[in-house]
């Protein structure tokens, strides 16, 4: 039997959140954390969380497992269980709607702020815009982001300034478009980022790198943005 301690909060019935202990029979198997959550939900249908693809590509089930953010569907219980106990909490730093479901509004707002879409003011050719494999390779490690928010919600700078600091996920996408040879809005993009909060609240703590379930490195991308700002201004 696995001991699971889960964060519970239903705004209609609970004055404040509490931790609930439940026992789960995993059948001796090393299940994924999401499987354990499904088992809990089969017993107690009021337990709320998000899930979709269950294979680590949709980014729905970012949760805090025994203190570390990650995707429940691709994290084996053995990786996060401590003394036969698994502690499940919502992603930190965002308002909780219910149980493990957080309000991602601020996270998405920061993503939108970087205008995460290709901007090109030249007329499109009849076929695709050409791009060399080397130039395309610059997007590797950037475009794979699944917007699960594990990084941004593990970043202290984002905890304090989620309304002003774009956060690692948004900045990774900002750089994804800065690095794209097909994008012509580099100057405008950089101008919008050159303030004391948007980029420069990153203090290089690297929690984002530590938790990214896709193995991406937002800190490095932020470094690249800073260098672009620097070479543009000096």
């Amino acid at each position: 039997m696995l001991q699971v301690s889960i964060y519970r909060y239903n705004p209609e019935t609970d004055a404040e959140p509490y931790m609930q202990d439940v026992q789960v029979d995993t059948g001796g198997k090393d299940l994924m954390v999401l499987d354990v959550m499904e088992l809990i939900k089969a017993q107690d249908t009021t337990f709320a969380y998000r899930r979709s693809c269950r294979e680590g590509v949709c980014g729905s089930d970012g949760v805090n497992m025994s203190g570390k953010n990650g995707l429940a569907c691709i994290t084996p219980v053995s990786q996060v269980v401590r003394n036969n106990k698994l502690v499940l909490r919502p992603l930190p730093g965002l308002p909780v709607i219910r149980d493990l479901v957080v309000d991602m509004g601020m996270f998405y707002a920061q993503y939108e702020k970087v205008q995460p879409y290709l901007q090109n003011n030249t007329p499109a050719p009849a076929i695709e815009r050409l791009q060399s494999p080397e130039d395309r390779a610059k997007l590797d490690g950037l475009y794979e982001c699944i917007l699960c928010a594990c990084c941004s919600t593990s970043c202290p700078s984002f905890w304090w300034n989620p309304d002003r600091f774009i956060g690692p996920a948004g900045l990774l996408q900002a750089y994804r478009f800065l690095a794209d040879t097909r994008d012509t809005a580099t100057e405008e993009r950089l101008s919008r980022l050159d303030d004391p909060f948007s980029v420069f609240r990153c203090h290089g703590i690297q929690n984002c790198v530590n938790v990214c379930p896709k193995g991406l490195n937002p800190t490095r991308a932020i470094g690249h943005i800073r260098n672009m700002l620097l070479s543009r201004a000096t």
Partner: peptide, 15 residues
Amino acid sequence: EHMGLPFSRTEAGRI
């Protein structure tokens, strides 16, 4: 592609 989809590329730069 014009919208920005990051297709893999051939040596000729095509999709």
